[in-house]
Design a protein around this nucleic acid. Sequence first.
DNA 1: CGACTATTACGATCATGGTCGTAGTATTGG
DNA 2: CCAATACTACGACCATGATCGTAATAGTCG
Lengths: 106, 106
Amino acid sequence: MMVSMDVTMGTLPQPELSEVDVATVLAALADPVRLSIVRELHRVGESTCTALDVPVKASTVSHHMHALREAGIVTTRIAGTTRPSRLRTADLEKRFPGLLNIVLAG
Amino acid sequence: MMVSMDVTMGTLPQPELSEVDVATVLAALADPVRLSIVRELHRVGESTCTALDVPVKASTVSHHMHALREAGIVTTRIAGTTRPSRLRTADLEKRFPGLLNIVLAG
DNA sequence: CGACTATTACGATCATGGTCGTAGTATTGG
DNA sequence: CCAATACTACGACCATGATCGTAATAGTCG
């Protein structure tokens, strides 16, 4: 068995939050499945697509995660064959103050 | 000529903002035309559908205003044949603190 | 290498909703 | 009443995107 050689894995491509406009973020959040994904990520901290408890197929979850990533809402790191994602809480709060709280409160 | 008999005209049906869920508001705001309507309403205070400077036909503007009204974002009063609308700024700030500022800043 | 798992890419289907035109309603003014 | 204006209701068309199944890719374990 190999010891892990590099803890600093890469992340999937994601935009600078300063370059993301409001319309993109709102459109990404205007979906019930994606809203539940965001809330679950906030609750558990980090999760892969298959571990999420949403009523759609895995390929659909991947599609939604892609949309959330392109909107700057989540960041996804590469860990072996898995792609754990988590909310970009600090970045979002700086760019859109209060937005995350609004979404999580609902 | 008749003097106006009743300044207290009615308003078009609108929901209590406490009964509006986040998904509805986000979906209503996730459209470029509706975003520009919201921003213009904030700038001029109040406006009718035809007076708004948006690149769509009047019937489409009416459709969008209907969506914004059902989402609790605008209130529309009845004034003769016109229907001037304005943002429900205070209600929105109480229900979704910071949301309006995020939208208007973009 | 081969089996298994996690994920993504791709194409197909289908529902949602943005847009328009037309028609209908309501109010004002002549 | 008649005309004009503001708006809405309705139906039609069409682009977008949510969903799925399948296939392809990549890592892990033996």
